[in-house]
Amino acid sequence: MTPHVSFTEQLLAPVAAWIIAVISAVGYGGVALLMAIESACIPLPSEIIMPFAGYLVSIGRFNLFAVATAGAIGCNLGSIVAYEVGKRGGRPFVERFGKYVLLNLHDLDRAEAFFARFGSITVLVCRLLPLVRSFIAFPAGVARMNLVRFHLYTFIGSWPWCFALAWVGMKLGAAWRTDPRLGHILHYGDAVVVLALAAAFVWFVLHQRKKRRA
């Protein structure tokens, strides 16, 4: 009898397989590479990358602290791209290409206001937050933030994020092998997760379009 495959598993399986292949082949360098891609504003979420790395920690392939460090280094490397684009492209870049990444001048104005009010610490705080963490390097470049401080805050803010996600993956990996109930719980929650993600994405797109028309 063919085992039932949920929609979420079908959706994530190719991405998950590629991530696992990269990490397995390149090791810690693969973790850094994937996190660099995410921090360069390319939609490859760290919420998938680091838990898979944490799973490899659970089977003894990696060390948890080393995985978090590799992920944070990758964030720094990828952020160079977004920083330089912001520094060299600035507002004209947002006006011309922002619509392709759901970024508009209102978002840039808000980010610049944060920088004006709170200074460079904005980068550190935003690196601890979902979604905005991969975007914050762009306005940092527009603001021409000091590079040494930028990379220092990027690393300090990214390391706890990478550690937390890898720790979750490590714990889930261990529990998955020892307690089959976890698999059943996650299976029943598939539909809820997919609907929630879809609703959040649709709301975000519509909200951005509404702001752009205004």
Rank of each mutant, 00 (worst) to 15 (best):
G27K: 01
A25H: 10
V26C: 06
P92W: 00
A137Q: 12
K171I: 08
F135Q: 09
A82R: 03
D109W: 07
F155D: 08
V192G: 04
G54I: 01
F62K: 05
T2P: 15
G141H: 05
G119M: 08
P51A: 03
R212F: 10
Q208N: 15
P45N: 02
L103S: 12
A53S: 12
W203L: 09
S158T: 03
A196V: 14
Y28R: 06
R212Y: 09
A32M: 13
L12D: 04
T154C: 15
R91K: 11
W176E: 14
R212K: 14
A36G: 12
K171Q: 15
G189L: 13
L124P: 12
L152H: 07
V193I: 14
L131F: 11
A214N: 05
S158K: 05
E95H: 09
R117G: 13
T8G: 14
L56I: 03
A68N: 09
A36K: 01
S6A: 14
L56N: 04
L182M: 13
N63P: 03
A113Y: 05
N63R: 09
M1C: 08
I80Q: 03
W176Q: 12
R91V: 15
G173I: 00
W159A: 11
A196T: 15
Q10N: 13
F62H: 02
G71H: 03
Y100M: 02
P92K: 00
G27W: 00
H207E: 09
G78T: 12
A166T: 03
L103R: 07
L103H: 03
L152A: 15
A72L: 10
H151F: 15
T154G: 14
A191E: 13
V132P: 07
W167N: 02
A82V: 08
A174Q: 10
A68T: 05
F201E: 01
G157E: 14
I48L: 15
A164M: 09
H106L: 13
L197W: 01
Y55C: 03
V194G: 02
Y100E: 04
G86S: 04
L56W: 04
G74L: 00
I49L: 08
W161R: 06
S24F: 00
C162E: 07
I37R: 09
A111Y: 09
R96A: 13
W167V: 06
L197Q: 02
A175G: 03
L12V: 14
A21N: 02
G119F: 01
W203M: 11
F65H: 13
R144C: 10
G71E: 07
E47A: 10
L103V: 12
V142N: 07
P160G: 01
H151K: 10
S120V: 11
V142I: 13
A214E: 12
S58I: 06
L128W: 04
L182R: 04
V142D: 10
P51F: 00
S120K: 13
R117L: 10
D190I: 01
I185K: 01
F65E: 14
A164F: 10
F97Y: 15
L12I: 14
I48P: 04
A166L: 01
L129R: 07
A111T: 09
G189V: 05
G78Y: 09
V192F: 09
R181D: 14
V5M: 05
P14M: 04
V142W: 06
D190R: 00
A137I: 11
R213G: 08
R127C: 15
A72M: 07
C75Y: 07
L56Y: 10
A164V: 13
S120Q: 12
L128Y: 01
G29R: 06
R144P: 11
A214G: 14
P160I: 04
A166Q: 04
